[in-house]
């Protein structure tokens, strides 16, 4: 692959927090994402919507480097994420480089994935102590502050098996934030929840948007919520961004037929 088109570092003045540059992902013959280009600027909240199988999760997993990519480069904060500079060109990143780079990205999963053998507090402290090398006291202070923010401080010594889905997801958000990521990823964080507890999780995310200057990328099926809090909404279809724009425009006045069909289909379902 010719890497000369990709700079070793993005130039000053053209440095979005995240840049997907011609990113391609395929599983065998199935092309899941085709030449994706997407910029997310610092502090921006971008929602990703689209039909099942359109590649939404894949976008997040590539950014978390849980999936390798087959073409293109992803940049985070101006520096290449999937590749590293070597002898004046970009080569696929090794494990060590990846580990350093992905420390600036946090992710929350649909099924929470809390560590069952640790309490809520221990879950939050694990990364800061084991990865960032913070002292126990510092990590505890940081974690307790975050657990307070998500409203889980009174349950800090409970194991995940004693928490409801909504509570587990709030702890998972605190755990990701404890690493002080620059970019937060949310993959359908409310899909596995009972309807009555969805609000407690969306309220936390809402709080992050209004009170913190985090860059966020969120996959969701909750159109109302996406419209409410996003700076921009991307509609994915067949591994491509079919349409994107400010929420009021995309939801209020969609331009493309596929977007219209999708939006009316989900409206009917509600």
């Amino acid at each position: 692959m010719d890497m000369s088109a990709y700079p070793l570092e993005l130039p000053e003045g053209d440095r979005p927090m995240v840049r997907f540059m011609n990113v391609t992902k395929s599983y065998g013959k199935l092309v899941v994402l085709d030449q994706l280009n997407l910029d997310i600027s610092e502090g921006e909240m971008v929602s990703v919507i689209g039909p099942s199988g359109s590649g939404k999760t894949t976008v997040l997993r590539m950014l978390m480097t849980l999936e390798t990519i087959n073409g293109g480069v992803i940049y985070v904060d101006g520096k290449p994420l999937t590749h590293m500079p070597k002898n004046g060109t970009l080569v696929p990143a090794d494990e060590k480089y990846l580990r350093r780079m992905r420390a600036s990205i946090g992710m929350c999963f649909q099924h929470f994935n809390l560590f069952p053998h640790m309490t809520a507090l221990q879950n939050c402290m694990e990364g800061p102590v084991q990865v960032l090398g913070l002292s126990k006291a510092e990590a505890r202070a940081r974690s307790e502050e975050l657990l307070t923010m998500v409203g889980m401080i009174d349950k800090k010594d409970q194991h995940p098996s004693r928490l409801s889905g909504g509570q587990q997801q709030r702890v998972a958000i605190a755990r990701a934030l404890a690493m002080r990521p620059k970019v937060m990823l949310f993959d359908e964080v409310t899909s596995a929840l009972d309807p009555e507890v969805i609000g407690e999780v969306t309220n936390v995310i809402r709080k992050l948007v209004t009170e913190h200057n985090l860059t966020m990328l969120m996959v969701t099926h909750q159109m109302g919520f996406a419209r409410d809090i996003s700076d921009r909404v991307c509609f994915f279809f067949g591994g491509k961004i079919e349409e994107q724009g400010p929420p009021d425009e995309l939801f209020g006045n969609p331009q493309r037929d596929r977007t219209k069909q999708f939006l009316s289909a989900v409206k009917d379902a509600d």
């Binding site: 978390m64 849980l66 494990e95 580990r99 350093r100 992905r102 420390a103 990205i105 946090g106 992710m107 999963f109 099924h111 994935n113 809390l114 560590f115 694990e126 990364g127 084991q130 990865v131 998972a172 755990r175 990701a176 690493m179």
Partner: peptide, 21 residues
């Protein structure tokens, strides 16, 4: 569950720490 690997990975844990902890 695979999600446990992924969660530990997302916290930037090294392979040895993921396994051990």
């Amino acid at each position: 569950p695979k999600g446990q690997w992924e969660a530990a990975y997302a916290l930037s844990m090294s392979p040895a720490k993921r396994m051990r902890r």
